[in-house]
Amino acid sequence: MSRKRDKGDGHSPFWRGPLLAWGALLLLLAVNVALAYLLGGDNPLIGVGIAVAMVLVVAIIFMDLRRSGPINRSLAGAGLVWLGIMFALMFADYLTRS
């Protein structure tokens, strides 16, 4: 957040990281579509797994979590943990219904 580090790492220009991330995201998207056709859409875990990888790329590079303080990182982590609680306990019901 300070001015210094927004100028980049000193030797690499400010656009380099984001541009690489953009390439990685397009690649992951292509892989995801290809896998959906190859494996059929029956297994949601593969698609969601790749989407989560894309989300992590955006969070770490675009949203700058890499260099954000521990508090912001914990906040992002807390979101995932709470989503985990919601899914886990909701499916504690749905997966055990007779």
């Binding site: 995801n32 579509v33 959906a36 056709y37 859409g41 790749i50 989407a51």
Partner: peptide, 8 residues
């Protein structure tokens, strides 16, 4: 992923 991929 939730909308477009399951039916491929």
């Amino acid at each position: 992923v939730l909308i477009y991929l399951p039916g491929r």
